[in-house]
Write a protein that binds this DNA or RNA. Sequence first.
DNA 1: GTAGGGTTAG
Length: 571
Amino acid sequence: MELDDVVDMFSVMVKSRPRPSIIDFNKLLSSIAKMKKHAVVISLGEQMQKLGIRHDLYTYSILINCFCRSSQVSFALALLGKMMKLGYEPDIVTLSSLLNGFCHGKRISEAVALVDQMVEMGYQPNTVTFTTLIHGLFLHNKASEAVALVDRMVVKGCQPDLFTYGAVVNGLCKRGDIDLALNLLKKMEASKIEINIVIYSTVIDGICKHRHANDAVNLFKEMENKGIRADVVTYNSLISCFCNYGRWSDASRLLSDMIERKINPNVVTFNALIDAFVKDGKLVEAETLYVDMIQRSIDPNIFTYSSLINGFCMHDRLDEAKQMFKLMVSKGCFPNVVTYSTLIKGFCKSKRVEEGMGLFREMSQKGLVGNTITYNTLIQGFFQARDCDRAQKVYNDMLSDGVPPSIMTYNILLDGLCNNGRIEKALVIFEYMQKSGIELNIVTYNIMIEGMCKAGKVEDGWDLFCSLSLNGVQPDVITYNTLISGLCNKRISQEADALFRKMKEDGPLPDSGTYNTLIRACLRDGDKAGSAELIKEMRSCRFAGDASTIIMVTNMLHEGRLDKSFLDMLS
DNA sequence: GTAGGGTTAG
């Protein structure tokens, strides 16, 4: 039955005489609660009150549960007080509802206290009570308390059931505590609780995400040897895991394996494969799978379309991306903020930021709210189009729309300003960031060091580099390369060499960029021996001359300033 | 007639 029908029935019941019993009203409220329409239940409860239809213990219990489910624990508590005044003693069910409310709100300490109070008041907590609290503890990142509670409930004579183990296993796997989860599987076997496929799939998925894929396959085999048959979800976890590691043949072997076993792949299976192919630049394969899934009568959904749109955008095939966008709408599958952001990014990357902005307005008109990523994309788009003012305006809009900037937002701002010759403005923002305790990452510093070097302020870049360790940030290869390049361009070769030595002593490994920058600097200085030395070292690290170095050497060759052996050395 | 959990994909 639909919600409307049930509500209609309520009005009929209210008018009919004699009035139906409170039990009938409770049944009706309960059915609405099962549809998760908690607000409706609450409002019908109020109407009953006004019409003089007295609540009983069950009515209160249902209403308290609905208040808790809709994050209005304080109202639930008020109702509990009211019902107790009327002489109704709450039972374990009502109190467990309340417990659930505390757990889902930010009141985990009250949840813990409630269970203690229940015991003091002579209630015997059951598996539902404990499971609810365990779930709450995981929600609040208190995994060890949750695990300890499983043991404590056993001590209190309450055997964990499948629900309890499900909650714990899931909580542990999400955190990557795989060993603890595996221990629990053993415990379940010892206490003769049948481990079902969902529990196994949970653990297999956890291993996929936090351990080696082969370990997941081993558990998969172990499970099947015990006579528990994998289902599509189990396969989906493994397939997406293999895809993430680029193990295409393993993934497709699993796909044919499941088809052969008549475990039908579903939309999730195909989405995992399509998305992974797209991200790896294999758009043709992704499109083939898309055709394949349609042939199997599996309907693409918003994930499928968004992945394919992303694929077209990555290859700058914006017309096809837009076509796919229109297609999904025509199929009744409506784009969300991710779909729009993907498309907006495609347009921005293609220097068509105005069209990106148009899409942003379109999505806002449809009631979709841009998130941090959406705004970041547009800000970056305007900077790339050298329109600092519009970029700045989008940033201001972001703040006034209440969307929180991330460190990525700031990095985009700093980078955009630096690249558009507005280093002074970037410095103001950078100082603001330092003062307001925003956690800067190495990318932030790299942007500023590069900006300073480009603006001819290599000394400032050097100072900033020296401040890194004070701020607890490790320089990476880009930091070194940027500063080395800045020093070379300023013809401060000795400092550049010193930095290169420091890098080799206690920094990240030099890469091709490091060597090429130094080699070009040597050549500019006319230091043939030094550059030959560096080239030798670079080659021994299996790097080769890059385009700018080769062009430079070729030019010098033509000018007769170098002999041909130099070019040969480079590659 | 009232309470709890768990798996996959952007």
